[in-house]
Amino acid sequence: MGMKLTLKIWRQKDGADKGRMVPYELEDISPDMSFLEMLDVLNERLILDGEDPVAFDHDCREGICGMCSLVIDGTPHGPQRATTTCQLHMRHFQDGDVITIEPWRAGAFPVIKDLVVDRTALDRIIQAGGYVSAPTGSAPDAAAIPVPQADAHDAFDAATCIGCGACVAACPNASAMLFTAAKVTHLGLLPQGQPERYGRVTAMVAQMDAEGFGGCTNTGECTAVCPKGIPFETITRLNADLLTAARRS
């Protein structure tokens, strides 16, 4: 005797299709299931009924690869804070709930099919400068670069970003600022990241804009939905670095 649910799922055959919401009824859902396992149950049924199963992105199913997405009842990754969709469990829903499932919505994330979107724009932001230029073999001894524990700690908090894009999905401006700021902060706080610090931030922000993401207006929606709790402070740090870069140029 599990839960009975109504799902309203965005179905869109491909990028050219207009798409629509389609309702599905599900019965006998166990509270111990994960949200994606619940969708697996639906898809098994759809296949046997000769219908097209719902396409959704997922991979590790342990909250770290950043592949899963889904806007659940208007919130990216669903109602539980600091939790990816794949780690969201059905015990957070009630029998009889109507659950709306939509893809990430952003012009820079075109829909590929159903709930699957193209997030390669985020990779291109990294390509613009989200790295330390340290060719293999050129490194000094690891102990030669001491890092104050507090800096290592703050850098780590930023480095935990999984690149899922929930920040973009939640932002009223569809801005990729938190994603960009997380990488700028991670590398900008470490001594290894200093030589490229100001060029990096300028290039990454320019790429972010070129991809068609919106601009940040400090609404804080991004950190509220971030499954890794990337702090808002990273955005402030990016702003500071960008202005310093502007002064220096």
């Binding site: 922000v205 972010m208 993401f213 960008l242 502007a246």
Partner: peptide, 10 residues
């Protein structure tokens, strides 16, 4: 920089 989205905010 000032024409970037972040620059406009500044």
């Amino acid at each position: 920089v000032y024409r970037s989205s972040v620059g406009k905010k500044a």
